[in-house]
Design a protein around this nucleic acid. Structure first.
Lengths: 102, 102
DNA sequence: TTGTAATATGTCATATCTGACATACACTAT
DNA sequence: ATAGTGTATGTCAGATATGACATATTACAA
């Protein structure tokens, strides 16, 4: 996780669950957020590997450029479902997904 | 995946995405569904391992018995987010999650 | 500089998921 | 049988995620 991502994490959005205070997240909330960030990073590298722009990927996935950007940035508004479905659509196998997670 | 789960899959709900026809699912839709079923199975075995009822688990997770049942059954209305968050709350590590997925 | 392509950010109506509830079903034990 | 306990299923109002759009920011040419 690079500095930019970390900053986003700290900055806004992710004040989830019952703990209202700044960065006062439970372990499982933290784990879920970090998981999403990993998947977002993977999505980005897969996209670049295929030399696609966010707009092109958006059309391919029948989504929108802004949502791709949010996925890659680890935005709190994106679901695991969308991330995983997108990775599968890009051809990631279940085993590869598992490697990303571990 | 046992027969009951498979039946549920075929029976109702999962007619997702652009393909309207019965069981006419794309590869990535299929992969996502099977992933959710695996996670649901894992949730159930973890719960039983802890000798909890669905109601007890529901209270622990601040959810409801019916939603636990749906998670374990692979109901199309449950998100990956909820499944993964629940598994993390039950103490599953990221590495263990990765093993379940692979 | 100016232009322009790529990416980031904010907002919103609609779609989907959520906990809660009611109720049905399955299985024991009495 | 019937009472009790656990699980499944259906529904719904409220909560959250979605694609779409507008606009901002960045990066890099000409």
């Amino acid at each position: 996780m690079d500095a930019k991502k970390r900053k986003k994490l700290e900055a806004k959005g992710w004040r989830v669950g019952s703990a209202r205070d700044f960065l006062n997240l439970s372990d499982e909330e933290m784990a879920l957020i970090e998981l999403k960030i990993s998947l977002g990073d993977t999505l980005q590298s897969k996209r670049k590997q295929k030399k696609m722009t966010q707009l092109e990927l958006a059309k391919f996935l029948k989504s929108s450029q802004s949502r791709i950007a949010k996925m890659e940035a680890g935005d709190p508004s994106v679901s695991l479902d969308l991330l995983v479905k997108s990775l599968f659509s890009l051809g990631l196998s279940r085993r590869e997904l598992s490697k990303v997670i571990s």
